[in-house]
Design a protein around this nucleic acid. Structure first.
Lengths: 246, 246
DNA sequence: CGTTTCGTTGATATTAATCAACGAGCGTGG
DNA sequence: CCACGCTCGTTGATTAATATCAACGAAACG
């Protein structure tokens, strides 16, 4: 479907990073991410092993089946995580945003592909280094497991959505959950920016692009939302929540 | 749908447990479960806090939204884990079998209901005790996270299945994955016992009971499987795998 | 300024859901 | 021990939801 090859790190974007995130101690994403588990001293150690990277849209961070050499923390932008079936069908597992942890600590291989939706910035650490830290710092391990617990919970929500909800419920649930996640990260605004394409939303919700488009149009017709450039605005949260919950 | 109230612990079944699993050191499930992370000394400690319980079919171990007081390890039987939508639609998140860890260590509340499919035996530990052990034993924490990683992986498989596979692919994938899990636990036989009902399978695969029934009939007509009492037998694994993978 | 990509909408096709009937197995009670 | 009533699984007929095919306009891009 989208199947474009990876693009390399853009040097210009990298420069932006260097100035914006000079070190872990002053990082604005810290309290949202796994780094929240680190003390002041550990943050300094972290600085020595962490690598800041910027990517343009459609860059591949890592691929399904590939050996996992790094783990990542997202500082900015949106990343789609997906798996492909042999015939090209794509299922997006999730969208990663600022503060999210990416990659596998204990497993050797990535089980999905991660591709930037828009301009992104990430911090990455060699997995071997991270593993060593995990062994030395139980509180980091615990934090990681906490994150895994949330991931499992979210996956189960998605399983219920895909297994038992209709198109309208799926779209409503997606808009609300994405809003919820954005709210942790930026000022909670009525307008929800949607950097991903309709095709991305469709592949996330197990629908086609046409059904997503029609459903969004219907929600707008019913005055639950308004479609704005690159996003939507919620008019009636309560009715949308009711819809989303089934 | 199934919505039956919980049944209490059957004393007779409990007796069976006492004789069959007298202690953790001789437990036949140990190497399959989280207890595999425990050393000989720790196993003895474990013996003092673990409670063996037996349940008849359709017993509720814990419910969606309920405070999580215990964590569980399954010794025998099959357990369905599900969530209900307000209007009664049910989505089965998974089936737990011998060796599986159940419950949430770090979260306060259960996010799904666990109900025995057939006669089961479980070991349970107060969550508070388990949490304390986690803090004291980093290797236990690591083991738990390893298990969580596998759970996340399986959830993602299920998301792909529900989002992008058709009925035939779903049923084929279910049969193979259930067989795979059983194989870890009992001698790998050509016949796959299916203790759960067609309705359970349907609620797991996001289908209706009729579609599951029809699809199984079709697989049998196509000579990929044979339906036997309380299970199926696989005739052509390769074609079934091909089907399941999409 | 042409060209491509993206989103929307309409018409039709297809898959799976729904509605319905039936038979087999099981437990219970006469 | 048999008969009745249930539950469960299967199969058939029809319907409904979403996918597919198709066309088009607007925005983005070189």
């Amino acid at each position: 479907m989208t199947g474009k090859p990876l693009q390399d790190i853009s040097p210009s974007t990298e420069k932006v990073n260097e100035s914006h995130v000079p070190n872990c101690s002053t990082c604005t994403t810290r309290h949202l991410s796994i780094c929240d588990a680190l003390g002041p001293k550990e943050l300094v150690t972290f600085d020595h092993v962490v690598q800041h990277r910027g990517f343009a849209a459609k860059a591949v961070l890592f691929e399904q089946g590939q050996k996992a050499d790094f783990v990542f923390s997202v500082s900015e932008g949106t990343i789609r995580l997906f798996r492909l079936l042999p015939d090209g069908r794509r299922q997006i597992i999730g969208f990663a945003i600022k503060g999210d942890f990416l990659g596998t600590a204990l497993a050797e291989k990535h089980e999905y592909t991660a591709e930037s939706v828009d301009h992104i910035r990430v911090c990455r650490i060699p997995r071997s280094t991270f593993l060593q830290m995990l062994d030395e710092k139980p509180h980091l391990m615990k934090k990681l497991h906490e994150i895994a617990g949330r991931e499992i919970h979210d996956s189960q929500d998605q399983i219920v959505l895909l297994g038992r909800k209709n198109a309208e419920e799926r779209v409503a649930a997606f808009l609300l959950s994405f809003r919820e996640r954005l709210a942790r990260v930026l000022t909670r605004s009525v307008t929800i920016p949607l950097p991903m394409s309709r095709q991305d939303i469709a592949d996330y919700l197990g629908l086609t692009i046409e059904t997503v488009s029609r459903t969004i149009s219907k929600l707008a017709r019913d005055k639950l939302i308004v479609v704005v450039p690159d996003g939507i605005r919620i008019l009636d949260v309560n009715r949308l929540v009711e819809l989303a919950e089934g």
